[in-house]
């Protein structure tokens, strides 16, 4: 990859592949994560989200392909990457015998920068007992602590692996807001791997859908939501089957006389065709990220010519 190109993005990968023994966990991932954006990785368990985060943070080496994170080679410059990119894992584990304060001291010495003022402020907001031993902290408090420890070195890039899994909506929102205020507010980049589609829909700029270690779709949230619509129509009579073979129709669901038609292009023509038929009601709705996610995961197959390709969105 060209140097200029590498420096333009927070992360740039080409043909990134990871194999463990005989199992290919990630296959031929080529994508770019722009700087200053919230980038979400979506996919079911085992789709390779965490492996991708580990690869681009230099925690594990690629079996094939190459990648650059903040202009640094992920295969050879892991330590340098982790000075400017911090990782919050799904289940953060710390040394139980240390107190919170001792853990902070331990971490402070490892990073070139450390914002103690930010920590002091947020320890009060999150109500984290600084003198308490780690082993006495609840799961939620540990996770908050992990986030604060990841934000204190003022990273250029923040990796969040299932950042708020298992938490109530209020906690989830507060957790993500803290992460985003400190990073996006300062022009930094956040990469989130998550199942929390509602939260992702609220915060993400760009999305990658992964399944079985491969990219199904890489697009901006705005674009995919603008281009992927659903026409809900209740016909008075049975519609002709030719209607559903029109170009741009992705999927048709029928519940009695109501038809839910998912369209990703040629929307105007499909709408006109439906409106020419006798009907009781018809409306055009936006799809939620959750609906798009389920559609992609259920329907899109590699090399399926009838399905939309990434560029079509």
């Amino acid at each position: 990859m060209r140097n200029v190109f590498i420096m333009d993005f927070a992360v740039a990968t080409a043909g990134l592949t990871k194999k463990y023994s005989f199992k290919t966990v990630l296959k031929d991932i080529t994508l770019q994560i722009p700087k200053g954006k919230v980038f979400a990785l979506l996919g079911p368990n085992g789709s390779g989200k965490t492996t991708f985060l580990k690869l681009i943070s230099g925690l594990t080496r690629p079996s094939a392909g190459e990648g650059f994170c903040l202009g640094l080679n992920i295969a050879t410059q892991g330590e340098e990457i982790r000075r400017s990119a911090c990782f919050v894992s799904e289940e953060p584990r710390f040394y139980d015998f240390l107190t919170v304060q001792e853990l902070l001291r331990f971490c402070r010495d490892l990073y070139p920068r450390w914002n103690s003022r930010f920590l002091d402020e947020h320890f009060k907001i999150f109500n984290i007992p600084i003198g308490e031993k780690i082993k006495n902290l609840s799961h939620g408090t540990r996770k908050q602590l992990a986030l604060l420890i990841a934000l204190a070195p003022e990273p250029e890039l923040l990796f969040l692996d299932e950042p708020a899994a298992g938490f109530d909506p209020i906690f989830r929102r507060r957790f993500l807001n803290t992460a985003l205020e400190k990073t996006i507010g300062e022009g930094k980049t956040v990469v989130i791997a998550s199942h929390q589609l509602h939260e992702i829909e609220r915060v993400a700029d760009q999305i990658v859908f992964l399944r079985e270690g491969q990219v199904l779709e890489h697009t901006s949230l705005q674009k995919i939501k603008a281009n992927m619509k659903q026409i809900k129509v209740v016909f008075q009579t049975e519609p002709p089957s030719s209607l559903f073979t029109m170009e741009g129709i992705l999927d048709v669901n029928r519940r009695e006389n109501t038809f839910y038609i998912k369209v990703n292009r040629n929307i105007e023509a499909v709408w006109q065709a439906c409106s020419r038929l006798p009907r009781f009601a018809m409306e055009l709705t936006n799809l939620s990220l959750e609906e798009i996610y389920f559609y992609l995961m259920d329907n899109k197959r590699e090399g399926d010519e009838n399905n939309a390709r990434p560029q079509s969105f």
Binding site: L59, E79, R82, F87, F94, L110, Y111
Partner: peptide, 11 residues
Amino acid sequence: KGTLFFLASTP
């Protein structure tokens, strides 16, 4: 104990 990942994710 799972603390090795935390250690490895530091610089």
